[in-house]
Design a protein around this nucleic acid. Structure first.
Lengths: 342, 342
DNA sequence: TTGAAAGCGATACCAA
DNA sequence: TTGGTATCGCTTTCAA
């Protein structure tokens, strides 16, 4: 790093003091005469001055930097979420320090400690698993934070309305006239992770319609493989199944592959609806009908909440999902939302 | 942010001076007696002291932070590259400030300026387009940097051996006995962007074998859509085509969709080989045969080079791609690498 | 082996 | 409206 000009150099060149330069640079806290301000600005320009953010951070005790920890930024869902968060942070002039937890809570804590060391102003955490330890760490260190996607009762959280998404996924399948719907996802009755919520929503609708349900367990993190194998087994055991509800796009990927391999034509003699809404879905064959997470809104909410701890007592917003109707459910341009072929 | 204990508090508690505490914390530059060191460490522990990295950065003029700018961190290829870079940075104790350029060079410059303001120690740039302006900006500001994936003569660069990848993709197709191979990708003869290099490699092999080639232009950034439409047109215009060489996995996605829609069975009566090697490929139907970029090595090289500007005069390493043989090329467990059905 | 103190660059109080 | 200066927390020189 070149040393670069300092505020003193600017002051000297503008024939004034560092205090005044600071006033100009920060629009306060004292007023500055128009011509003085002009000279300062000119000096800044001529010198190519850029203020030292470390020095400023030391002084004002704010870094204008946010930390983000995600389970795996290479997985489409988290990648799209991370992009939305970066967009929101950038729009507000904040920088983003990103760390990968590799779906490992120990690594997640390491990343949080690194952020603590970096003295970020706040942390956006997309938990890899149970966030209890992470929340405890953040609270103990009084570091403002918000959880995204997977939440926790002791921390402000932002998430999509997963239960509703699960509900709507099954409803869409029922509207197609599907009679035997298998659920792909590992949900427990008490847990409040996104997949469990989606499973609960889906089950509620199935129960209300007195439809048989075949829930299949697909534990993280090898979703695609697990879902692939589970679907294979499922279809072999019960040929009557005419619809699949995947609780994530990753599950859908595995299901699509399995179904195709055993000769089922997805979107034709087997309906598939997924939840997540990653960009990917639009380009699969057949294109995935999926409940789309409100990525942009989640990113904006997360950044907004975390930057204003005052208004983040324990909010958990539940933004609604969108619905991208494509081919995998049996809908088609000419035959929208009708019963599948037998 | 809680103010937290400072080095003075630690010194006071350990009954010594801040200088000694610093010596202990940094293992130097002066030696410290064993018992003094123990007292300091104990104090650090009891107080839960964490050093202020801004103050340190101000003093030593290093932030232990790297900047990373990518075209779009939600696109699988860049997401996997970013993950590899984060892994490498984390392993060396560096933090990573990540910025998205949205495939826009103006935004890319904004991001670089933000990193300049953050006074990162160095920048890893995955250029969105021609990196000339970015390189100029980085050089002018004397900020150590390395370009990844897409390189530039005036800057150190790290990339996979794209030309070789293009070559091998076509060679694999030829080994399958394919006779009419269409190339999906927008390459110009002079450009040195990855896609152009891949196209050149592919063309060289085709030329050497005196095979007709049908190169198709698919400009960024709507690769999937462009590739989809191009493939549709291509297949309609020339039914003889028995193989597709996609220059990126994104191109492959569009091609797969188009081919399937017009009734071609990829991996069966139409071979497809791609280049990139994103995780995605393994889960498509059929699974994608693809030249795999050496993500981990690229990430490590990039971080290594950028942290040691001394040994980065103008290196452009060209790491070899791997080859993931799956189904889309016509290979199969029982029928590896044989001629496709007619 | 230890410690007093200078200083990194910016902010903002207090006095002018 | 302006400017001198103490201060943020840490590193490191210099003297002891």
């Amino acid at each position: 790093m070149a040393p670069g000009p300092t505020i003193r150099d600017v002051a000297a060149r503008a024939g004034t003091s560092t205090a005044v330069v600071s006033y100009v640079l920060n629009d306060g806290p004292r007023p500055v005469a128009a011509d003085t301000r002009a000279r300062v600005l000119a000096a800044v320009d001529e010198l190519g001055y850029r203020r030292n953010s470390q020095a400023r951070a030391l002084r004002v005790n704010r870094t204008e930097t946010l930390g983000l920890v995600v389970p795996d930024m290479a997985k489409p869902f988290f990648a799209e979420l991370a992009r939305a968060i970066e967009d929101a942070a950038f729009a507000r002039g904040y920088r983003l320090l990103v760390g990968n937890a590799h779906f490992d809570v120990a690594r997640e804590s390491d990343q949080l400690r690194a952020l603590l060391g970096a003295r970020v102003d706040a942390v956006v955490l997309v938990p890899s698993d149970d966030p209890a330890a992470a929340v405890e760490l953040l609270r103990r260190n009084r570091l403002p934070h918000v959880l995204v996607h997977r939440t926790h009762p002791d921390a402000p959280g932002i998430a999509g309305d997963d239960t509703d998404a699960g509900r709507r996924a099954v409803e869409h399948l029922l509207a197609h006239g599907c009679r035997r719907i298998a659920l792909l996802g590992d949900g427990t009755a008490e847990a409040d992770d996104p997949v469990s919520l989606r499973v609960r929503g889906a089950r509620a609708v199935l129960a209300a319609h007195e439809r048989p349900e075949l829930a299949v367990s697909c534990p993280f993190p090898n979703l695609r493989d697990d879902s692939y194998r589970a679907t294979l087994a499922l279809l072999a055991a019960d040929p009557q199944i005419d619809a699949l509800c995947a609780t994530t796009d990753e599950h859908a990927l595995g299901a699509l592959r399995a179904a195709t391999e055993v000769g089922r034509r997805v979107g034709d003699d087997l309906a598939l609806v997924s939840i997540d809404g990653t960009e990917l879905g639009a380009y699969l064959v057949p294109a995935l009908t999926t409940l789309t997470a409100p990525f942009a809104a989640l990113g904006e909410d997360a950044v907004e909440v975390v930057l204003d701890p005052a208004r983040a007592p324990a909010i958990v917003r539940r933004r609604p999902f969108g619905l991208a109707i494509r081919r995998s459910c049996g809908c088609s341009p000419d035959r929208p939302n009708t019963t599948l072929k037998a």
